[in-house]
């Protein structure tokens, strides 16, 4: 029965990814990130605007993350809830040491990224590889945790390949990162739209409110 409960739990968790909206919005955010990195490179850190953009990396990153979440939530409320229902996920109340360590490592990597990219321009190409690896790991983690989203294996592998390829291009630092983010953004958006289309086909909008009782 424990195994069956685990299966039910995974199925419910994978519900969030069934509509592809997370990938569409995530893809658009990646495209914006790509534009940001390319723009910083194009303007140069020495210029006022370039310097300001580089210094505001965390603000841009968090801003896009917040904006993306709001957009996903809004779109799900409007288009997914009437078709597939609403579910509020359970907040884990168990000890979260592993997650905290993971979050701390992730924050340290982001901080190192900012420091190194400002101080040691040559290292940035390695950070394209690292970024590809991190995104690949996050996708893999999402698939393992939720299950039922095999396309994440493909996206995870692609992220790794694009990260390594980006690191080997020999392009200026910002352009290499920009290229990685833009490529992943296009792929995320494309796969997300395909999933979204299938979701709409399989879940036609009901004529009226679906709830009873």
């Amino acid at each position: 029965m424990q195994a069956e409960l685990k299966r039910v739990e995974q199925k419910v968790k994978s519900h969030w990814f069934k509509d592809g909206l997370g990938e569409v919005i995530g893809g658009l955010m990646f495209l914006l990130m790509g534009t940001y990195f390319a723009l910083v490179e194009f303007l140069g850190a020495a210029s006022l605007l370039g310097g300001l953009l580089q210094a505001g990396f965390i603000v841009v990153f968090l801003g896009l993350f917040y904006f993306g979440r709001q957009m996903i939530s809004g779109l799900k409320t409007r288009h997914v809830v009437p078709r597939a229902g609403f579910v509020e996920y359970r907040v884990d109340r168990e000890p979260q040491t592993g997650k905290h360590i993971g979050a701390a490592v992730f924050a340290a990597v982001i901080a190192a990224f900012v420091v190194f990219s400002i101080r040691i321009p040559g290292i940035l190409n390695w950070l394209v590889v690292l970024t590809g690896l991190l995104v690949a790991l996050m996708l893999l983690f999402a698939q393992l945790r939720a299950g039922g989203i095999p396309r994440f294996y493909f996206l995870s592998t692609l992220s790794l390949i694009l990260g390594v390829a980006g690191g080997l291009t020999g392009l200026p630092d910002g352009y290499a990162l920009g290229l990685y983010y833009a490529s992943m953004g296009i792929v995320f958006t494309a796969t997300g739209l395909l999933v979204w289309q299938r979701f709409l086909r399989e879940n036609p909008n009901p004529a009226g409110p679906a709830d009873e009782k």
Binding site: L5, K11, V12, A84, F86, V87, R90, D211, E212
Partner: peptide, 27 residues
Amino acid sequence: AMILSTVESADFLFLQRETGLTKGNLS
């Protein structure tokens, strides 16, 4: 009960889709 035990809350439509029950039965 098993579905609801894995989430904080879920609505009628979600439960109906997950269980495959009719509206009347689910109700």
